[in-house]
Design a protein around this nucleic acid. Structure first.
Lengths: 144, 144
DNA sequence: CTAGCATGTAATTATTATGATGACAAGTTT
DNA sequence: AAACTTGTCATCATAATAATTACATGCTAG
């Protein structure tokens, strides 16, 4: 139906860390900004950490980016938080009837199309970096 | 997570109807090809009908395409079966903290990006027609 | 060295979408 | 009238999401 808000939250977390570089970005502070539970943020920080996007350490408050914002694409975040299975944005019905010409071929006909459509979307996400988001928000704050 | 297989099933249904033009495509026959329940097929035929893609009539067995296969795009099917809400492929977390610079801006910063990414994918689907699928399967059947 | 915060992670829960299914009203054909 | 069909409703098991509680483990300041 819809791709989990983990993706949006992941972007939020990274943006928060970057825009609060001087201060300590603990799961508690981030949770307040996102307006959700600290445990959820910690779980997500774990994913971002495993993907090599941030540095966090048990017992030590706060997190920092492991790369420059310009080197973190939205695709990186998207993959880190695991919102869409590899090549599985579109689900295909299983076990169509092999005795039917349509049933025995439809999967193989559709699969490459679905994969290509997914790739179009993911390639777009690859072009946007965390820096773009951070700058956009900085600009909005100046004006506002 | 993943886009409902209704999309793939919708394509299956239309392909089945086209490749069985001479015969009667009742919900029972189609259900056997898809390997699912006839009631589900009828429900989906209702969606395809409302989208103007097929013609079905109560009491009369079978369905036929309302347009030429070359005039039915995968985007038409995708929209007909309602797998993704308009502009909502990506969900955004609600109620981020308005007292935080990130919280009060993140939604507006992310929305257009998500919309654009979704559009990339949908524009790709618009380029593929039912005719492409039908021909691909016909070709596979010749070889096989 | 210990009290007090952190992170890491497991378990639970309410909510929601999916997909399968059964039942049946209403329409059509023979 | 009998035997089909489509259209639609209600139900159900399953799976993912997002929120939450709880607690083990790690660090650090006093």
């Amino acid at each position: 139906m819809s791709i989990s808000s983990r993706f949006a939250v992941g972007i939020h977390i990274l943006t928060f860390i970057e825009l609060n570089k001087g201060k300590v970005s603990s799961s508690d502070y981030i949770a307040k900004s996102v307006n959700t539970n600290p445990a959820l943020i910690r779980k997500m920080m774990g994913m971002l950490k495993r993907a090599g996007l941030i540095e966090v350490h048990p017992g030590i408050a706060g997190a920092k980016l492991a790369k420059k914002p310009s080197e973190i694409t939205l695709l990186d975040v998207y993959k880190a938080v695991n919102v869409v299975r590899e090549n599985q944005l579109f689900r295909i019905h299983e076990h169509p009837n092999p005795n039917c010409p349509v049933g025995r071929n439809i999967q193989h006909s559709i699969e490459p199309i679905f994969a290509a459509a997914q790739l179009e979307m993911e390639n777009f996400l690859k072009k946007i970096t965390l820096e773009n988001i951070v700058e956009d928000i900085a600009k909005k704050e100046e004006i506002g």
